[in-house]
């Protein structure tokens, strides 16, 4: 039953990153400014707060082409909007729990706290995630047309 994607070229993971404006997006800026190189597999979605990342966006990304989703927010206690990151943490935990129970690898979804000064951590996270997702192979969802 399992079909593989018709593409023959080497698998390059595609990762969508939802980054909060105040911390992780700024940290990503810093990674750029300080010339930290990381794999070109990431596509950034700019949001004001990690607390505004909806599960439907994450699922939609995984179903329509992404192999991994990174959600980056402020460290606990540092949220500009007081507690958006705590709310995001619950949502992501629920989503990962559900996928895990269904046997869909929940490790395609990463939640990371990356502050505005952690450009290096941002670059390292993207590098690490790209490698981890590369090892996992293409996302199950997009390999099956009938999902």
């Amino acid at each position: 039953m399992a079909e593989t994607a018709p593409k023959t070229e080497a698998f390059e993971p595609r990762i969508v990153a939802f980054l909060c404006h105040w911390c992780t997006y700024t940290g990503a800026d810093l990674a750029g400014t300080t010339r930290q190189q990381y794999p070109p597999n990431i596509r950034v979605v700019h949001l004001m707060c990690s607390g505004a990342v909806d599960v439907v966006y994450v699922l939609k990304a995984l179903m329509d082409g992404a192999d991994g989703v990174l959600i980056g927010g402020c460290h606990p206690g540092d949220c500009h909007y007081e507690s958006g990151n705590y709310k995001a943490r619950r949502r992501v935990a629920i989503l990962r729990n559900i996928l895990g129970q269904l046997g869909i690898p929940e490790d395609r979804i990463w939640l990371r706290w990356i502050s505005a000064s952690e450009g290096k951590k941002f670059a390292e996270t993207v590098t690490e995630m790209t490698e981890a997702i590369r090892a996992m192979g293409p996302c199950e969802f997009k390999q099956h047309w009938d999902v």
Binding site: L59, M63, I94, K142, W145, D146, V147
Partner: peptide
């Protein structure tokens, strides 16, 4: 576009997405 990207696309689309999203909303 989805059909082009993945090679094929179930219609109506987003059936499993609907169920998984609903699950996220009502599981708690």
């Amino acid at each position: 576009r989805w059909a082009e990207r993945k090679g094929a696309q179930r219609m109506p689309a987003e059936t499993v997405l609907f169920h998984l999203t609903r699950l996220n909303h009502m599981a708690t």
